Amino acid sequence: MTGITARPARGRSAPAPGPDRITVAAAAWPVARPDSLQALEARLDQWLGEAVAGGAELAVFPEYGGIEAGVLSPRWRPGDLAADIDAASDMAGIWLDLHRRLARHHRIHLLTGSLPVRDPVHGLPVNRCWLVAPDGSAAHQDKRMMTRFERESWGIGPGDARRVFDTALGTIGIAICYDAEFPLEVRDMVAAGAEILLVPSCTDSAAGYHRVRVAARARALEGQCFVMQSPTVGVADWSEAVDVNRGAAGIFAPPDRGLPDDGVVAQGGLDQPGWTIATLDLGALRRVRADGQVLPLRHWDEQASAGRA
């Protein structure tokens, strides 16, 4: 398989065939205001070059990383949240095309930073990211659960239904930030075959970051899957939407035989920009799913009021 096939996260499905081991990179992305599209592309190109030099076959950028592209739209105005949405949506096609070029150039799978998009299918703008394959093919995932800021201040709404993405690396699910705090959202993805869950995040406090981190580790445990968290970091006083950013990149697993005892595959430093790179032993994960010390994925439906998938 060379591209990406997106399908609804419904029912039970086996994962797409994939390798036993892959190397992945989660970004702690320092938000910065670009002065041109060329400068933004050059920065992303440099970062991806570093990830590839570290062996990465999949690179993950954070939630609202695409706000940087919105600054380059003529409709962007500092301190104006509505203008942030319009400007970012103006740049959505350019943002995707940029990442398609970079994925082809570096021969890597990547998750774009998300950005607000005005999609005519939805009444409100949505928070959207794209998974891009090395051949430039792409498919999107929208955020499903809105934070209070998105609901009450920014007017962002839920987008398209949950999906999983079949790739040459196996089956991947995406839970954007707050989505990861809702077990049934992710349960549908792992039931549909996801072995890797991507959690791009954007949080403005240490407490917010830790909420997402705790959720990511819980989803790894109960879904018997690998989870990659990629946050924004740093101060962006030019942006009303992403003005303060706290977090650390992390890669997590279910604690079981052949996987880390504490469930932490790799962890970056708090508020420290850079890549966190690790090799995922998917063979070990599959053995744990089949014959682990515990079998939460298999036993899920024994809970009261379970059996949704």
Rank of each mutant, 00 (worst) to 15 (best):
T2S: 14
I4C: 03
T5K: 12
P8Y: 08
A14R: 05
R21V: 10
I22S: 02
A27K: 12
A32E: 14
R33F: 06
Q38N: 07
Q38Y: 04
A39F: 04
D45K: 12
Q46V: 10
L48Y: 05
A56N: 07
E57I: 00
E63K: 07
E68K: 07
L72S: 02
S73I: 01
P74H: 01
W76V: 00
D80M: 03
A83M: 01
I94N: 01
D97R: 14
H99P: 10
R100W: 02
L102P: 10
R104K: 15
R104L: 11
R107Q: 14
H109V: 01
G113Q: 06
S114P: 06
R118L: 05
D119F: 02
D119P: 05
P120H: 10
L124E: 15
R128Y: 06
W130R: 08
A133E: 08
S137E: 13
K143R: 14
M145G: 03
T147Y: 10
F149E: 04
W154Y: 13
R162Q: 06
R163N: 08
R163Y: 06
D166F: 04
A168D: 13
G170L: 04
I176C: 10
A180N: 12
E181K: 13
F182Q: 14
V186Y: 05
V186M: 11
D188P: 00
A191G: 04
A194L: 08
A194Y: 07
A194K: 08
L198I: 12
S201M: 15
C202M: 15
D204E: 13
A206P: 01
R211Y: 03
V212T: 15
R217H: 13
S230R: 12
P231M: 02
V244Q: 09
R246M: 09
I251G: 06
A253C: 09
P255W: 05
G258Q: 00
G258K: 00
L270I: 05
G274F: 10
T279E: 15
D281V: 06
L282Y: 07
R286N: 01
R289P: 01
R289W: 00
L295V: 01
L297A: 00
Q303R: 12
A306T: 09
